[in-house]
């Protein structure tokens, strides 16, 4: 059986993770097609349905309206779309930096490895979130900066995981065989080492995405991330928290959907890790 099939089989044994996977797919689907399910636009104010309390199926404000009369349902979906987009983009940034850095450090080893990992240690001890906050405050708020900055802080974990895996991989016979065939280091790295990292990288990615969603919403909550008229879960939670005495549902819906999404990612990540490392599997 191929390793991927085996992994999938072990993963399927985790019932909670399978449920999480389906729920997550439903959420993503809803985020993609959701805005067409509702007659309202993200930033339009419905003067008739002002302060509609959920569930108000009568006027199609499924989640009610916020204190300004904007439809919460549409805003939660739109915010989720941006939150997830930022999360995927930032994770991609951290993936590229982390895999490259970790693979080079682990493969070449020796003084270079020691020096590179020492640098990671030093960076790891930095309270990076403070620097990101600073970056956002100082250079204005734009979405590109948000995910580049978040991606740039999240690559450290990836680099460590990848390095460890590469250290183990390069002892294997097929790498030795490639060497004796006269393949150069760059080709061995790209052709033989990197493809074998897929498993650990997948787990780290699944566990990085919720981290990034949290960081993005943290920044947006402080008013430093995604800005009006665009919106994200963090921005919505921030707005909802300010008006929670009058329209608590404008806080509860984005918070609940974000928590549900994070929960799904965490469950899937845990199950994937178990599936890859079957030591204590049931």
């Amino acid at each position: 059986m191929s390793p991927a099939r085996l992994l999938w089989q072990r993963f399927r044994a985790h019932r909670a993770a399978m449920v999480a996977l389906s729920v997550l797919m439903l959420i993503v689907l809803a985020l993609c097609i959701g805005p067409w399910l509702s007659p309202f636009a993200v930033d339009s104010i419905d003067f008739d349905g002002e302060w509609a309390t959920p569930p108000s199926t009568v006027n199609a404000h499924w989640f009610g309206t916020d204190s300004l009369g904007r439809d919460v349902f549409v805003r939660v979906l739109e915010g989720g779309r941006i939150s997830l987009l930022v999360a995927f983009a930032a994770t991609l940034v951290s993936l590229l930096i982390g895999v490259g850095y970790g693979a080079v450090a682990g493969y070449f080893g020796g003084a270079l490895d020691a020096w590179m990992m020492r640098t990671v240690d030093i960076l790891y001890a930095l309270p990076f979130l403070f620097l990101v906050i600073l970056l956002m405050v100082l250079f204005g708020r734009n979405v590109v900066l948000v995910f580049v900055a978040i991606g740039a802080i999240n690559w450290l974990d990836m680099a460590r995981v990848v390095r460890g895996q590469v250290l183990a991989l390069k002892q294997r016979e097929f790498v030795l065989a490639a060497h004796t065939h006269g393949m150069d280091s760059a080709a061995i790295l790209l052709r033989h080492i990197v493809p074998n990292l897929a498993g650990v990288v997948m787990v780290t990615v699944t566990l990085t995405i919720p981290q990034v969603i949290l960081t993005e919403s943290f920044l947006s909550f402080l008013g430093l991330g995604v800005q009006e008229p665009a919106t994200s879960w963090g921005t919505l939670i921030n707005e909802g928290a300010r008006e929670m005495q009058t329209t608590p549902w404008a806080l509860l819906f984005p918070a609940a959907l974000m928590a549900l999404t994070l929960l799904c990612f965490n469950l899937i990540g845990d199950a994937l890790r178990d599936a890859l490392d079957p030591r204590d599997a049931p």
């Binding site: 919403s217 909550f221 909802g240 806080l251 918070a255």
Partner: peptide, 18 residues
């Protein structure tokens, strides 16, 4: 615990206040 990991401080804070 899984729920707790998925709900950040800044969501818990306003909910507690509420």
């Amino acid at each position: 615990a899984l729920l707790g990991v998925s709900i950040p401080s800044y969501v818990v804070a306003p909910l507690l206040v509420l």
